Every structure is written in C-alpha cells, then in structure tokens.
Simulated assay, not measured.
Amino acid sequence: MREIIFITGGQRSGKSRFAQELAEYSSANPLYLATARYWDDDFEQRIRRHQTDRGEQWETIEEEKRLSSLSLDGRTVLLDCITLWLTNIFHDNGYKLEIALEEAKREWNALIQQDFRLIVVSNEIGMGLHAPDESSRHFTDLQGWINQHIAASADKVYLMISGIPLQIK
C-alpha cells in the first residue's frame, strides 16, 4: 500500500483542497496530520479554517516535528504542511541551516518507512522575490532542498497552479 503523493505550489494555489480531495477519495476515514504551531492570532484563524473545511470522517493528529514517532501503518494520511513543519525545526535549531536540514532529512526518512498512503503538502517559496535577509534566504534554501528530497522519494508529484493540479512525476 505504501504510496507517497507530493503536492507543491504557491500560497493559495489550491494545494490543501486538492490534497483533501485525494485523501477523501482514497479512504473513508483519512487522517489529517497537522504540523502548525499556534504562532499568533492569524495562524489560529488559518488553523480553524482548515478544520472547518474537513468533514466528520477525518481524524486529526497534531505533531509539530516528530512525525516518525506516530504509528500510521495502513492509513491514508494528509500531512499539511512541510513548510510549517520546517519552520518548527528551523526555529528550534536556532535558525542553523545545516543542522535543520539534517534533522528534517533524518525525520522524513524515518517517517516514510511506514506502510501507508501519504499525501504531502508543501510550498514552493523560492519562485518569488529574493528574500531580503539572511535567515529568510536560508529558510528558502532549506525549503527547496527538502522539497527536492521529498519529491525524490515520492511516487507522484503535483504542482498546483491557480487551482489546477499538474502531475510532473
């Protein structure tokens, strides 16, 4: 059953909606794996919006970093999202790029040892303006390298543009 579907694109490109549709098509009781931290009121409102978008058939688990600690065998899992997960790792490692990259790769590699259908949402943040400060540039690098790492292990990869999924792998 192991299958990894990676969905990436820009902000508000329809990634989460498409991922949710795939998960609901694949399972009568999908699992939503939320990685967001409650950083501020705006994040709390975004989290609430995502929660109300999902029906009663969904089970939700919140895990900020240690994704591989969860037992997910046999499930259809929607992991939303890699960008927030990386933010947590980057922040908790004092914004040190190499340490955060190694931790994220290690955690991802351990997570995908399970036998499940994993639908993963991420962001393509390197397609816009060049980040103005060093920390932001490092995070853009981190996001790009992890997206490449995840895409390499994925069975299917979709790029979302204006609500339209383009399968690129």
Rank of each mutant, 00 (worst) to 15 (best):
S153Q: 06
E107T: 07
L79C: 07
S71Q: 14
D80S: 00
L22K: 09
A36C: 11
L79H: 04
A110N: 11
W145R: 14
I4C: 00
A34G: 10
G55K: 01
F18A: 03
I150Y: 08
L84D: 08
L166A: 10
T83R: 00
E56C: 02
T83K: 03
L97Y: 12
R54P: 07
S122N: 05
A110L: 15
G144D: 10
L101K: 15
S13P: 02
G74Y: 08
D40I: 01
M1Q: 09
E21H: 03
L31E: 10
I7N: 05
Y38H: 13
R54L: 09
R106S: 15
G74I: 08
H138D: 14
A154N: 00
A104R: 07
P165R: 03
Q20D: 06
L33P: 06
L166Q: 10
L166C: 10
A19F: 04
E21Y: 04
A36W: 06
T83P: 00
Q114I: 01
L118V: 07
L111E: 09
R137S: 01
V120Q: 08
Q57L: 11
R46N: 02
R49V: 13
R17F: 08
S71P: 02
F139D: 07
T52Q: 14
T83Y: 06
Q45T: 10
R75E: 10
I5P: 05
G10V: 08
G128C: 04
L86I: 07
S69Y: 03
E21V: 03
G10C: 02
Y25I: 05
Q11I: 14
Q114M: 06
D42R: 10
G163C: 01
E62H: 09
T83Q: 09
R66Y: 04
S136I: 03
S13Y: 03
D133P: 00
I47F: 04
M127I: 12
I89P: 00
R48G: 03
G144M: 11
S69A: 15
E124K: 01
R75M: 11
S162M: 15
R106E: 15
I61N: 01
M160Q: 02
R2L: 11
F139G: 06
D133N: 15
H91C: 08
